[in-house]
Amino acid sequence: MENHDIEKKMMSIVAEDGSVEEVEVILAFEFKDTKKEYVIYTKNEKDENDNITVYVSNVDRSSGDPKLMGVDDEEEWNRVKDVLRELSKAE
């Protein structure tokens, strides 16, 4: 199935200064053991080699509204990268 056949899921990121940025969500998952939620999104930025930049954030919903947080822990970051590697493989 081609990706363009499916409606994109857009996300509006509201910065502290109130500015809003529209991005496209391409993946969302949570780890079964920690229940931590992650969202992978893109602004459709490409570099000179046609590589696409994607952003990874932890989603914190503990305060009610969802909030994007960074992934600072090294081990956690490696786990996220592993997930993306695995999902990027051909089925």
């Binding site: 509201v14 930049t53 990874v56 989603v59 994007l68 992934v71």
Partner: peptide, 21 residues
């Protein structure tokens, strides 16, 4: 998962975990 991501807040200090694919 597929949850509501219509509007999310972002801390300006949030780390930019970036990957090039």
């Amino acid at each position: 998962i597929d949850r509501d991501y219509t509007t999310v807040k972002s801390d300006d200090r949030v780390s930019k975990n970036i990957i090039k694919t």
